[in-house]
Nucleic acid binder design. Sequence first.
DNA 1: CGGCCGATCCACT
DNA 2: GTGGATCGGCCGA
Length: 216
Amino acid sequence: MTPTRRDPGPAELATRTQLSRPAAEVAPKLLDALLVSDLGPQVIVRVTEVEAYAGLGSDPASHAHRRRTERNSSLFGPVGHAYVYFTYGMHWCVNVVAHPEGTAGGALIRAGEVVTGVSAARSRRTSARSDRDLARGPARLAMALGVAGDQDGIDLLDPRSPLRLELRAVDAPMAIGVGPRTGIAGEGADTPWRFWVDGDPTVSPYRRAAARKSTR
DNA sequence: CGGCCGATCCACT
DNA sequence: GTGGATCGGCCGA
Protein backbone atom coordinates (compact mmCIF):
# COMPACT_ATOMS: atom_id res chain seq x y z
CA MET A 1 0.00 0.00 0.00
CA THR A 2 1.41 3.35 -1.00
CA PRO A 3 1.60 6.04 1.62
CA THR A 4 -1.05 8.66 1.13
CA ARG A 5 0.39 11.80 -0.31
CA ARG A 6 -1.19 15.04 0.73
CA ASP A 7 -1.39 17.71 -1.91
CA PRO A 8 -0.57 21.09 -0.43
CA GLY A 9 -2.77 24.01 -1.43
CA PRO A 10 -1.46 27.12 -3.17
CA ALA A 11 -1.41 29.12 0.05
CA GLU A 12 0.78 26.51 1.74
CA LEU A 13 3.15 26.42 -1.21
CA ALA A 14 3.39 30.19 -1.21
CA THR A 15 4.21 30.22 2.50
CA ARG A 16 6.82 27.52 2.01
CA THR A 17 8.43 29.69 -0.66
CA GLN A 18 8.38 32.72 1.65
CA LEU A 19 10.31 30.74 4.24
CA SER A 20 12.94 29.59 1.73
CA ARG A 21 15.00 32.71 2.36
CA PRO A 22 17.80 33.68 4.75
CA ALA A 23 16.59 33.49 8.35
CA ALA A 24 17.32 37.16 8.99
CA GLU A 25 14.98 38.07 6.17
CA VAL A 26 12.25 35.67 7.20
CA ALA A 27 12.27 36.37 10.95
CA PRO A 28 10.57 39.80 10.90
CA LYS A 29 7.86 38.41 8.64
CA LEU A 30 6.86 36.04 11.42
CA LEU A 31 5.86 38.94 13.64
CA ASP A 32 2.11 38.99 14.20
CA ALA A 33 1.80 35.44 12.85
CA LEU A 34 -0.26 32.92 14.79
CA LEU A 35 1.05 29.73 16.37
CA VAL A 36 -1.85 27.37 16.87
CA SER A 37 -1.47 24.46 19.28
CA ASP A 38 -3.94 21.60 19.52
CA LEU A 39 -1.62 19.67 21.81
CA GLY A 40 -4.35 19.41 24.40
CA PRO A 41 -6.89 22.21 24.75
CA GLN A 42 -6.30 24.78 22.01
CA VAL A 43 -3.93 27.65 22.68
CA ILE A 44 -3.15 30.31 20.09
CA VAL A 45 -0.26 32.74 20.41
CA ARG A 46 0.30 35.88 18.36
CA VAL A 47 4.05 36.18 17.78
CA THR A 48 5.58 39.43 19.06
CA GLU A 49 9.32 38.67 19.18
CA VAL A 50 11.70 36.54 17.09
CA GLU A 51 15.41 35.99 16.52
CA ALA A 52 17.16 34.81 13.37
CA TYR A 53 19.86 32.13 13.42
CA ALA A 54 21.73 31.13 10.29
CA GLY A 55 24.25 28.33 10.21
CA LEU A 56 27.15 26.46 8.69
CA GLY A 57 29.94 28.91 9.30
CA SER A 58 28.05 32.14 8.82
CA ASP A 59 26.64 32.53 12.32
CA PRO A 60 28.72 31.48 15.36
CA ALA A 61 25.68 31.83 17.64
CA SER A 62 23.66 29.28 15.71
CA HIS A 63 23.26 25.68 16.80
CA ALA A 64 23.89 24.80 13.16
CA HIS A 65 27.16 26.72 13.01
CA ARG A 66 29.59 23.82 13.07
CA ARG A 67 27.87 20.94 11.38
CA ARG A 68 24.79 18.83 11.29
CA THR A 69 24.30 16.74 14.42
CA GLU A 70 21.40 14.72 15.75
CA ARG A 71 20.19 17.60 17.87
CA ASN A 72 20.21 20.29 15.20
CA SER A 73 19.22 18.13 12.23
CA SER A 74 15.80 19.79 11.91
CA LEU A 75 17.56 23.05 11.04
CA PHE A 76 18.91 21.38 7.93
CA GLY A 77 15.55 19.97 6.93
CA PRO A 78 12.54 21.31 5.08
CA VAL A 79 11.50 24.90 5.74
CA GLY A 80 8.30 25.43 7.66
CA HIS A 81 9.04 22.59 10.03
CA ALA A 82 9.85 23.08 13.71
CA TYR A 83 13.25 22.89 15.37
CA VAL A 84 12.60 22.25 19.07
CA TYR A 85 15.62 22.08 21.36
CA PHE A 86 16.24 21.43 25.05
CA THR A 87 18.37 23.85 27.04
CA TYR A 88 19.54 24.63 30.56
CA GLY A 89 18.54 21.16 31.65
CA MET A 90 14.86 21.99 31.80
CA HIS A 91 13.53 24.21 29.00
CA TRP A 92 12.25 23.67 25.48
CA CYS A 93 12.33 26.36 22.78
CA VAL A 94 10.72 26.51 19.32
CA ASN A 95 12.20 27.62 16.00
CA VAL A 96 10.59 27.89 12.60
CA VAL A 97 12.99 26.40 10.05
CA ALA A 98 13.78 28.98 7.36
CA HIS A 99 16.71 29.00 4.96
CA PRO A 100 17.58 28.86 1.30
CA GLU A 101 18.33 25.50 -0.32
CA GLY A 102 21.53 23.95 0.93
CA THR A 103 21.99 26.02 4.07
CA ALA A 104 20.57 25.74 7.58
CA GLY A 105 18.85 28.10 9.93
CA GLY A 106 15.65 29.31 11.42
CA ALA A 107 13.85 31.81 13.58
CA LEU A 108 13.54 31.35 17.33
CA ILE A 109 10.07 32.32 18.48
CA ARG A 110 10.89 34.31 21.58
CA ALA A 111 7.59 35.70 22.77
CA GLY A 112 3.95 36.20 22.02
CA GLU A 113 0.53 37.12 23.27
CA VAL A 114 -1.90 34.34 24.13
CA VAL A 115 -4.99 35.29 22.13
CA THR A 116 -6.95 32.06 22.59
CA GLY A 117 -6.93 29.51 25.40
CA VAL A 118 -5.70 31.71 28.23
CA SER A 119 -6.97 29.29 30.87
CA ALA A 120 -5.28 26.31 29.20
CA ALA A 121 -2.05 28.28 28.94
CA ARG A 122 -2.36 29.24 32.59
CA SER A 123 -2.71 25.64 33.68
CA ARG A 124 0.60 24.89 31.95
CA ARG A 125 2.25 28.04 33.30
CA THR A 126 1.30 27.95 36.95
CA SER A 127 4.10 30.30 37.94
CA ALA A 128 2.99 33.08 35.56
CA ARG A 129 2.05 36.14 37.54
CA SER A 130 -0.04 37.72 34.80
CA ASP A 131 -1.49 36.88 31.40
CA ARG A 132 1.21 39.06 29.91
CA ASP A 133 3.86 36.63 31.17
CA LEU A 134 2.23 33.47 29.79
CA ALA A 135 4.38 33.43 26.63
CA ARG A 136 6.87 36.23 27.36
CA GLY A 137 10.13 34.36 26.70
CA PRO A 138 11.00 31.42 24.43
CA ALA A 139 10.70 28.66 27.05
CA ARG A 140 7.56 30.19 28.50
CA LEU A 141 6.01 30.33 25.05
CA ALA A 142 6.82 26.68 24.38
CA MET A 143 5.34 25.71 27.72
CA ALA A 144 2.18 27.75 27.16
CA LEU A 145 1.65 25.91 23.88
CA GLY A 146 2.49 22.51 25.37
CA VAL A 147 5.48 22.08 23.05
CA ALA A 148 8.35 19.72 23.97
CA GLY A 149 10.83 17.44 22.25
CA ASP A 150 8.08 15.35 20.68
CA GLN A 151 7.34 18.25 18.35
CA ASP A 152 10.86 18.54 16.94
CA GLY A 153 10.61 18.27 13.16
CA ILE A 154 6.84 18.67 12.97
CA ASP A 155 5.51 20.35 9.81
CA LEU A 156 4.07 23.67 10.94
CA LEU A 157 2.38 24.28 7.59
CA ASP A 158 0.50 20.99 7.38
CA PRO A 159 -3.13 21.73 8.26
CA ARG A 160 -3.27 18.34 9.99
CA SER A 161 -0.43 19.16 12.40
CA PRO A 162 -1.33 19.71 16.06
CA LEU A 163 1.09 22.65 15.97
CA ARG A 164 0.69 25.08 13.12
CA LEU A 165 1.99 28.43 11.92
CA GLU A 166 -0.32 30.88 10.18
CA LEU A 167 1.33 33.87 8.57
CA ARG A 168 -0.80 36.96 8.37
CA ALA A 169 -0.62 39.75 5.86
CA VAL A 170 -0.01 43.07 7.52
CA ASP A 171 -3.03 45.26 6.88
CA ALA A 172 -1.59 48.20 8.75
CA PRO A 173 2.06 49.22 8.88
CA MET A 174 3.55 47.69 12.01
CA ALA A 175 6.43 49.34 13.86
CA ILE A 176 9.23 46.77 14.20
CA GLY A 177 12.05 47.02 16.71
CA VAL A 178 15.48 45.67 15.76
CA GLY A 179 18.43 44.87 18.01
CA PRO A 180 21.03 42.31 19.07
CA ARG A 181 19.98 38.81 20.10
CA THR A 182 19.40 37.90 23.72
CA GLY A 183 21.82 35.76 25.70
CA ILE A 184 24.48 35.57 23.01
CA ALA A 185 28.17 35.69 23.95
CA GLY A 186 31.25 36.17 21.80
CA GLU A 187 31.11 36.57 18.04
CA GLY A 188 27.63 37.38 16.85
CA ALA A 189 26.66 38.99 20.15
CA ASP A 190 25.99 42.31 18.46
CA THR A 191 24.39 41.07 15.26
CA PRO A 192 21.01 42.85 15.11
CA TRP A 193 18.91 39.80 14.37
CA ARG A 194 16.27 40.19 17.04
CA PHE A 195 12.97 41.64 15.88
CA TRP A 196 9.93 42.61 17.89
CA VAL A 197 6.57 44.35 17.66
CA ASP A 198 7.49 47.78 18.90
CA GLY A 199 5.73 48.78 22.09
CA ASP A 200 4.11 45.40 22.69
CA PRO A 201 4.07 44.50 26.41
CA THR A 202 4.62 40.78 25.76
CA VAL A 203 8.12 41.34 24.29
CA SER A 204 10.71 39.86 26.64
CA PRO A 205 13.38 42.00 28.30
CA TYR A 206 16.77 42.08 26.58
CA ARG A 207 19.61 40.42 28.44
CA ARG A 208 23.18 40.29 27.34
CA ALA A 209 24.91 36.96 27.82
CA ALA A 210 25.99 36.20 31.36
CA ALA A 211 29.68 36.87 31.80
CA ARG A 212 31.56 33.62 31.87
CA LYS A 213 33.06 32.54 35.14
CA SER A 214 36.82 32.71 34.90
CA THR A 215 38.29 29.23 34.68
CA ARG A 216 41.45 29.90 36.70
C1' DC B 1 12.37 47.33 38.11
C1' DG B 2 17.06 45.48 38.03
C1' DG B 3 20.71 42.28 39.53
C1' DC B 4 22.18 37.95 41.28
C1' DC B 5 21.92 33.00 41.76
C1' DG B 6 20.62 28.13 41.73
C1' DA B 7 18.17 24.63 39.24
C1' DT B 8 18.90 20.59 36.18
C1' DC B 9 20.26 17.58 31.94
C1' DC B 10 22.25 16.23 27.85
C1' DA B 11 24.65 17.01 23.37
C1' DC B 12 28.92 18.10 22.25
C1' DT B 13 34.08 18.37 23.03
C1' DG C 1 33.73 17.01 31.95
C1' DT C 2 31.32 21.30 30.57
C1' DG C 3 28.05 25.01 30.05
C1' DG C 4 23.93 26.68 27.70
C1' DA C 5 19.27 30.80 22.11
C1' DT C 6 16.28 30.36 30.35
C1' DC C 7 13.37 30.92 34.29
C1' DG C 8 11.77 32.11 38.82
C1' DG C 9 12.76 33.43 43.51
C1' DC C 10 14.90 36.68 46.38
C1' DC C 11 16.99 40.84 47.44
C1' DG C 12 17.71 45.95 47.46
C1' DA C 13 16.31 50.51 45.46
